[in-house]
Design a binder for these strands. Structure first.
Lengths: 206, 206
DNA sequence: CCCGATCCTGAGCAAGCGCTTAGGGTCTGG
DNA sequence: CCAGACCCTAAGCGCTTGCTCAGGATCGGG
């Protein structure tokens, strides 16, 4: 019914195709975000999706495969957001602010997903973890590139580019930990605040 | 043997008094930090402490009590570090930089402990969690006070004091997630970098 | 030499875990 | 009305979990 209108950017799990598999995945995201991967049982996931425990194994080989799918899709999305703002001819300050705003907004709006994506890495198998870490390396590279270009253009004054990149990403990612929907700030507001703070961190000193 | 020289500030668990109980607690910190609370078994903790699984229950009523003790001591320590730098007659900029440097250094040096303290809150019982959250509220208040005083004194320009306080603490706390001992940065260096970045975040604009 | 206190272990219980399997509904095409 | 594909469930297997308990090792005081 709502599949058609949800295929855009606002449908986070539109790419998960059998509808039953998507229901299970959404249920898993909620459960993992609330209790953590290890504290979540396959019975709980199946129950939230309105199915019996056995139904899960028709669509996914293991519980870890569910986590991997969530993590993979989430990282792809986060990286795409960064890359969308990184290119172009705009000044580095504008591109950095855009990247931070958009990245932070995603971590706030989809904070259940982001929590799983950012904080359950250790629960992945070795193989899957290395795959995901490579995506994070790419995110790091995108941000570092913007900052480097800002320094080269004389827009920024950053003594330690890798360290500042790390801090910027760390700041944004941690939004997923403390943000909650009942709080007083909207994702939009947090994005704007953080973009301002990050620009101050790299600004040319007076 | 080394108990005497470790009773100072550098002995994080000096206050845990029966020696066997301390061994178990240190083992639990390691295990929780590596695998997470829920993925750690009581057999693993006891094994690391060189004891049988049953020995744990002579010193602690439950596995959750171990987590609570770790969390409580860690939060007390972190709060004490902040408070030690917050007072005095020095300019707000100096006090803020000192607090960040010291807080970050602790999160890096004791990153195993800090990881448990900061990221396993959800595993606590309702009662214990409320107790710990109150300590975090106090940490927030300490930092907010320094920033407010800096604004009042005209040292800082901060449009959103609660939001900036949140961001500063979030930035520092997240060090525990990404820091690792084999990395290229020392806790000292990360503390210095972060103190600089935070001062930029609050600095009066040119 | 024995006594009681202290601290720990071996063995194991009930419950819950991830996952499997045999089989039964339901729907489409004829 | 039937056939066969598809999707799901009831039941449960083998294992691990947090935790318990009866009893043994060790040691200072009489």
């Amino acid at each position: 019914m709502s599949t058609a209108e949800e295929t855009g950017e606002d449908a986070p799990w539109g790419e998960v195709t059998p509808e039953a598999a998507r229901r299970l995945l959404v249920a898993a995201v909620e459960a993992f975000a609330e209790r953590g991967y290890h504290a979540t049982t396959t019975r709980d996931i199946a129950g939230r999706a309105g199915m019996s425990p056995a139904a899960l194994y028709i669509h996914y080989k293991t519980k870890e495969e569910l986590l991997h799918r969530i993590s993979r899709i989430g990282h792809d999305r986060a990286l795409a957001l960064l890359e969308a703002e990184a290119g172009g001819e705009a000044p580095a300050a504008e591109r950095l602010a855009g990247a931070v705003r958009s990245f932070v907004r995603w971590h706030a709006e989809r904070y259940t997903t982001a929590r799983v994506v950012q904080y359950e890495l250790d629960a992945l198998s070795d193989e899957h973890r290395t795959e995901i870490i490579e995506l994070r390396r790419q995110s790091d590279a995108v941000v570092r590139r913007i900052i480097s270009e800002g320094v080269a253009a004389g827009e920024f004054d950053v003594p330690d580019v890798p360290g500042t990149t790390l801090a910027v990403l760390s700041l944004c990612i941690d939004v997923a930990r403390w943000f909650n929907a009942q709080g007083s700030r909207t994702p939009e507001e947090v994005g704007a605040l953080y973009a301002d703070l990050v620009l101050r961190m790299v600004a040319a000193q007076k």
